[in-house]
Design a protein around this nucleic acid. Structure first.
Length: 232
DNA sequence: AATGATGACAACCGCAATCCA
DNA sequence: CTGGATTGCGGTTGTCATCAT
């Protein structure tokens, strides 16, 4: 196996993003370790995977956590602990890294503050600790009432109806019944990008990358940086 | 204006889990 | 079954922007 002896590190450049997206659009994901070499990137496979999963992958939403999302994170963190991937699985469009960062930089402090306040108010509330036994054999088997999963979104909407913007304000509402259903497209459905991988690898006049973006441009919400087009 | 402190987030590292020949 | 390769996860660090002094 041939590896880059000193893979590049640090912030990704737009050109690197472009190369990675273009490669995945054209050839798909087959082997993260080998992919960067073929894509012309001097990055480790790990770095490419992280970049794709957290930022370049369509349907990834960043920043601007709603009140409901914050409450869900706090509740799940209380139930599951720092199992960010499990928490992310219950928050459509959010990545574990994003949730982890958000918790560490904002929510954790808030929760500690609230706990201090509630403790000083001399209620019978217990301290903010896991409600799950730490030695629980399988916390995934827990019943989590009111928490949606992929199965809760059986009828994904078409891309064109996913988002709309009005001026500087996102129009999608997230109500108490967790109507993020409005914004959700199942991963299964999502990857049914028509014929990308069935196309010949080299096809004059067929701009696969442009077609890919054209399929997903309706997902982009410039206000909330919902899937940033890396080519811009 | 310069500089240090702080916050937010992107990215890396090490390890565990999983895959597969 | 086994061991190396690959992927996934969570903790941590690095970097940059903003704010306070």
């Amino acid at each position: 196996m041939v590896r880059q002896p000193y893979p590049k590190k640090g912030t990704w450049t737009p050109d690197e993003d472009h190369k990675l997206v273009a490669y995945i659009v054209r050839y798909g994901i087959w082997n993260w370790n080998e992919m960067p070499r073929f894509a012309g990137l001097q990055r480790s496979g790990k770095s490419c995977r992280l970049r794709w999963m957290n930022y370049l992958r369509p349907n990834v939403r960043r920043g601007n956590f709603s009140r409901e999302e914050e409450e869900t994170i706090i509740r799940l963190q209380k139930q599951l602990g720092n199992r960010w991937s499990a928490i992310a699985a219950r928050l459509p469009h959010r990545t574990d890294n994003d949730i982890k960062n958000y918790w560490n930089t904002r929510l954790k402090k808030r929760v500690i503050l609230q706990n201090n306040n509630s403790a000083s108010s001399a209620t019978t509330e217990t301290s903010f600790s896991f409600s799950v036994e730490e030695n629980s054999p399988d916390a995934d088997s827990l019943i989590l009432p009111n928490i949606p999963t992929m199965a809760d979104f059986p009828e994904p909407l078409t891309y064109g109806t996913t988002f709309s913007s009005s001026g500087c304000h996102q129009t999608v509402e997230i109500d108490n019944s967790y109507s993020m259903r409005e914004t959700f497209v199942s991963s299964e459905n999502y990857w049914e990008i028509p014929s990308f991988l069935e196309q010949p690898l080299i096809d004059e006049g067929f701009d696969r990358e442009a077609l890919w973006y054209s399929h997903h441009q309706n997902l982009y919400d410039p206000v909330n940086d919902f899937w940033v087009n890396p080519l811009v």
